[in-house]
Design a protein around this nucleic acid. Structure first.
Lengths: 248, 248
DNA sequence: GCGTTCACTTGTACGGTGTACGAGACCTAG
DNA sequence: CTAGGTCTCGTACACCGTACAAGTGAACGC
């Protein structure tokens, strides 16, 4: 018989814990999760620690463990919480699926930019927290309205949202790098390109990169990225439309 | 003046280190990187440590630091190495860009399945190692052959490869989870679905999931995933074709 | 031959990490 | 008043990345 292995915080047998009265520390899962998100935002995933979190709550590290089984569980809670912050387009708005998809994709992208640590976590967990589920439900509904047959919808969903995930991840990590280096995105970009140019082995690649940069135009890194994102999203939409038109 | 911050192992001023003769331990960057990849494959990123790596090489942890500045640098080297293992379609084969794109995407997906730890790393580094560059060059060439204007090519590249990255990441992490739990993918899937069904709050979602599963058909999780991947990739291709046809 | 220098290897140590464990402190029920 | 549950805390363990300094042994100039 297969042992019942842990799958997710969200699939525990019991609800968090029955509370009898206000505890002296005033702690609860909600407050801990909120503090965790704050700390993750300021320190990043690598420097996030249970001890620092506890200190911020004026409590010892082990107190936190009363409300949460492991650090991973807490991270799972934190992830679901930030997903819950996303604005979600009203499914009953009657708007075209394309517009709702653009809105949802923009939200999702913004998530990884605002919380770069979230990128590293989505891959690790099952993402079945209540807010993640709601987001998934909405996304599913948008794809359902494209007219694709049911059995192809999950693939189309993958196509779009995995792209947004990847794009947002790279973007978020880049921004974090810039911040840590104390440079603006454009400064950091020039810095990296400079170091790149100075590597003799990469001469050809550097020139190609320059040529592409020139063609893309755009004054700032951010502007170019925005354009790329919008265009890539239109590629996704056009692809789905083409598949619908092909009738499969 | 902006301090010259670290950007990547690949942008160091000097080549690794001049070697005079065969060292008693027989160590070098190559061997260390290879051992690192092996250890990452067997232990996963979370359980990878410099001490374990050194032990596997019959050497103390600090010896490794003679060849490599930090753990992160080593991880960057390991990542580039596995990228180098990917089969790359011959750019001069004259094959249609669609076929070359399918081949390249399949390779990239396989990377994250074979080395789930690589997923967590691609986001963290600049990915400008020689093998990553070669892969990028090839991908760039494929996109160039679609007929898209130069200034839209990087966006199209994003669209496809960020999707593959996201897809491969989720797939790789899932497989790793299954292995750690000692279950087959189908067993684990049923296990998770079961736990899911038992959560009263998720009744509606569970039923929707079941409905979609039924529609997708397919005997195994793997089969369904393969179909999803192929279809999503065709969505990408159709999208690019549509954009080319639109003349922008 | 001999001292120096360089290329490495090693041992020790520091300041962190996640978290198991057990001893309390307080509140409530009986 | 006692018993038990809920929560907090201090201590401790095993492990981590890596700084630092003291070796070791071979190559080289003299």
């Amino acid at each position: 018989m297969v042992s019942a292995r842990r799958t997710s915080v969200w699939l525990e047998g019991k609800s968090p814990r029955a509370r009898k009265a206000e505890q002296p520390s005033g702690l609860d899962r909600e407050k801990i999760t909120e503090a965790a998100v704050r700390l993750l935002d300021t320190e990043g995933l690598a420097r996030f620690s249970m001890r620092k979190l506890a200190a911020g709550l004026n409590v010892t590290a082990m107190s936190v463990y009363w409300y949460v089984d492991t650090k991973d569980d807490l991270l799972e809670l934190a992830l679901d919480r930030v997903v819950g912050e996303l604005p979600i387009p009203d499914p009953a708005s009657g708007a075209d699926w394309r517009d709702r998809l653009r809105e949802l994709a923009a939200s999702y992208r913004a998530l990884f930019v605002a919380h770069p640590w979230a990128s590293s976590l989505v891959g690790h967990f099952l993402n079945i927290g209540p807010r993640s589920m709601e987001f998934g439900r909405t996304a599913q509904q948008v794809i359902a309205d494209t007219g694709l047959p049911l059995h192809l919808q999950s693939a189309a969903l993958s196509s779009v949202f995995q792209f947004v995930y990847g794009f947002g991840t790279v973007e978020g990590q880049f921004r974090q790098r810039c911040e840590e280096a104390g440079m603006s995105q454009d400064e950091y970009f020039r810095h990296a390109m400079g170091a790149f140019r100075d590597q003799p082995a990469y001469g050809e690649d550097y020139e190609r990169a320059e040529r592409i940069m020139a063609a893309r135009g755009g004054d700032t890194v951010e502007e170019m990225r925005d354009r790329d994102f919008r265009f890539a999203l239109e590629v996704q939409i056009a692809g789905i439309e083409a598949m619908v038109a092909r009738g499969a």
